[in-house]
């Protein structure tokens, strides 16, 4: 587009402050991380000499790092499809006329807007071995006092965290998919019904393609959120027991702010950014975000 020099100056003056701030948090950290990651700063020594790729080589040998990455992937791989399917099922349940629907929807929004750290705290109340309602209900059902250590027993921490995570974010999927479903062209559904298409056929041939763009964006948003999963896990287990539920974000936090491995953390952060950029690039190619 051709702009007069007057308009160009005007538009640049509008953009400049924002760009400056974004560079500050978008590019400065990147440069800084790059510099620090080639040095040797730790808690004990302020070694700013050039260390070459040492920190990056350490990445490959760090079992705990790869474990945390694996945990992150596991959380994502389980939570995301479950949230999607449950959200879609709920949206289907609510799409037809239902008395009191606005009230239901208003209530279902609540988990999404709660701070994740509060959500984590809430679920630690729920999971409390002695005073929590979950064990209480199980006690009723089993007919005897039960004290399950949800956030401590190794084979229960994952279900516990996933439950909290899914509790908070399924309504997100639900709201978006409900909106998408309401926007499906009714006349197409009627035409399919006249053509004698069954429910499944209609769903896969008409409904799914129609809501796919929204679904793709919802998946992208949630996948990126899950990749940086921190708060809920922090509130429930702080990554424990041991490092069993440590996500990549928690790992980086522990390295940087509890063990003060400054240079190494910089390398980890860089790796996270690079990894994510690759994923985001690939994803953005498939999702129509720009109109």
């Amino acid at each position: 587009m051709r702009l007069s020099s007057r308009d160009r100056r005007f538009s640049l003056s509008l953009v400049a402050p924002s760009i400056f701030l974004l560079l500050l948090v978008g590019v400065f950290p990147l440069v800084y991380l790059l510099v620090v990651s080639f040095q040797g700063i730790t808690m004990t020594e302020l070694d700013t000499s050039f260390q070459g790729l040492r920190n990056f080589r350490m990445l490959f040998d760090d079992e705990r790092l790869w474990q945390s990455l694996l945990h992150t992937v596991i959380f994502t791989a389980i939570a995301l499809p479950l949230e999607l399917v449950l959200g879609l099922a709920m949206a289907q349940l609510f799409i037809d006329k239902l008395p009191g629907r606005p009230v239901f929807v208003a209530l279902l929004v609540l988990p999404v807007v709660v701070s994740p750290i509060v959500a984590g705290a809430t679920w630690s109340l729920m999971f409390d071995q002695r005073f929590g309602p979950i064990n209480e209900v199980i006690s009723w059902m089993l007919g005897g006092e039960t004290t399950i250590l949800w956030t401590i027993k190794p084979d229960l921490v994952y279900p516990a965290i996933l439950l909290a995570e899914i509790w908070q974010w399924t309504p997100f999927m639900f709201l978006l998919l409900l909106a998408a479903l309401s926007a499906v062209d009714k006349s197409q559904l009627e035409a399919a019904a006249i053509d004698g298409a069954g429910w499944w056929r209609t769903f896969f041939r008409i409904v799914l393609p129609a809501i796919w763009p929204v679904m793709a964006i919802a998946i992208l948003i949630r996948a990126l959120d899950l990749f940086r999963l921190f708060d809920i896990v922090w509130a429930l287990t702080k990554g424990g027991p041991g490092t069993m539920t440590e996500t990549i974000s928690i790992f980086a936090y522990v390295k940087g702010f509890q063990q003060f491995e400054t240079s190494y953390t910089a390398a980890v952060a860089l790796m996270i950014i690079v990894l994510l950029s690759v994923v985001v690039m690939a994803a953005l190619k498939r999702v129509e975000l720009t109109r």
Partner: peptide, 16 residues
Amino acid sequence: SQRMVPPIAVVFPIFL
């Protein structure tokens, strides 16, 4: 895309 950067990667250098 700036929106999608994980906070932990940003906050670390910002902290320094």
